[in-house]
Amino acid sequence: MLELRLVQGSLLKKVLEAIKELVTDANFDCSATGFSLQAMDSSHVALVALLLRSEGFEHYRCDRNLSMGMNLNNVSKMLRCAGNDDIITLKADDGSDTVTFMFESPNQDKIADFEMKLMDIDSEHLGIPEAEYHAIVKMPSAEFARICKDLSSIGDTVVISVTKEGVKFSTRGDIGNANIVCRQNTTVDKPEEATIIEMQEPVSLTFALRYMNSFTKATPLSNTVTISLSSELPVVVEYKVADMGYIRFYLAPKIED
């Protein structure tokens, strides 16, 4: 028996919007720790890891570990039927091939049940070791989204370079090239407007902008984004999901031949 009640149901709606472009089908895993997912895109270049910790739910019942295969487009269709202020509850019986999404309006005057078929998915799980990153950049998520969007109108790839001067995003294409430098800036009115650069050593890596732009679909989840870079490691682009967890996107770099 599984029953997860999330008062801030809009978080789940935003999570689905953030990952459904990248991944088509995925297994959602439930355990005592929380509700999680790890899935790669079809070309195995990008990976999304989601964790919503059990403590973040108003009610969290998971009698035994359960893996539920879902088509994310179909989950998104279901969740779009929930109001932004609705409380969302996920329910599944042991051995059932369906999951039920229950939507309750804030004043309890409307209650809806949407039952969705589960599917069997052969997913490949990758072990992601804890790593020391050479540079960690924390910046406003809207600013990062703007940079990725702007650069993708010029080129297909972005070079992200961190030096003591700041973080530089560069691209080049047929019509020309572009460089955007963001310096550390902590003298802002609100902490979420700050750009904070922690650098152990300079790092410069090249990534496909198409994936970066896909990651920025998570922007509505968090005012800030954290970009962790290390030579010869996939970049990690992390958005916090309120105080209950995170979405982390991993993207393999381009390799010089």
């Binding site: 070309s43 195995h44 990758l126 393999a252």
Partner: peptide
Amino acid sequence: KSSQGRLESFFKPS
């Protein structure tokens, strides 16, 4: 000239 890396080059199946 550069080629796109794949995640399996960095992370092993668990």
